[in-house]
Simulated assay, not measured.
Amino acid sequence: MLLVVLLALTALVSGCNTPALYQDDIYNPPVYWGRHVVKPGETLYSIAWRYGRDYRELGSANGIKPPWHLKAGQVLRLDLRGTVTSGRQTKAVASKAPPTRTARAPAPTAKSAPKPTVTRAPDKAAPLASQNQTVARVNWRWPHVGTVIAGYSSSGKVNKGIDIAGKAGDAVRAAASGNVVYAGNGLLGYGNLIIVNHNEHYLSAYAHNRKILVQEGEDVKAGQVIAELGSSGAERPMLHFEIRKNGNPVDPAHYLPRR
């Protein structure tokens, strides 16, 4: 036993990926120790998914900026903590705020301009506020019509999502519109996996597929067929479906419409 522990510590120090984190049947809170060596085919999204981290936070911790490109052999430190900011909102506020201030400044000298400027400022601000408030809203739909055979659980026999029964070859559909940020089989326990980014907060995953029908970087629409249901990485044909908010697994039953 002592030898096993020493070998594990040696592997960590020598730069190997942080061990004991790839098993899907073990619940792992966010990992903030060790480091990860990027392998061919891995993306920041899939790596963050593996370690229970928000991809933006992990990228920030390692000085990586959008569009989050990685290279094989690149080392990501997991013992660092990054920050998460809303890039789109920050840019929007920066571009809209200055015109409002400059429009008010010349008011005493301009006789014809003040009224139109004053009335336009609220009109511009209102859509921005509305957009910021709805940025996290996603119109979810069921990715498959089968029966749920295992629900979400964060204790006991942990399940980070739900398992839906089906037949091999059944259509697996995108639960919401978004962009495919991972399509592969590099995460142990998930088989052929697809991860879709829906907005700054939400990701969804579709595991155990027989065949992946989309590619990384592809935009998909809600209800679009993205894979064929299968049993890769599972004992029976089924779809394992997850939703993660800011990197954390959440119960899909709280988001999917009632049947």
Rank of each mutant, 00 (worst) to 15 (best):
R81E: 14
H69K: 15
R88C: 02
G34A: 06
A92Y: 10
D79T: 05
Q89S: 15
A20V: 02
R35Q: 15
D25K: 03
V31R: 06
N62Q: 09
G73Q: 11
K65S: 13
N17K: 00
T83C: 06
P30A: 12
L70N: 09
K96R: 12
P99K: 12
E42D: 07
I64F: 09
N28I: 00
P98L: 13
K65Y: 10
K91L: 14
R50W: 01
S46N: 04
T43N: 07
D54C: 03
V37L: 10
Y55E: 08
L78D: 08
A97T: 15
Y27Q: 00
Y51W: 04
A61N: 09
L21Y: 00
A48C: 06
D25L: 01
T83W: 12
T18L: 04
L44G: 07
G87E: 12
L70K: 06
D25N: 10
Y51H: 03
A105W: 13
Y32T: 06
S60T: 03
L70I: 05
A103R: 12
D79P: 04
A97N: 08
R81L: 12
P30R: 02
P19F: 01
Y51I: 01
K96W: 14
G52F: 03
R88L: 14
K91Y: 14
L78E: 07
W68C: 09
S95K: 11
S95N: 13
P40M: 05
V38N: 05
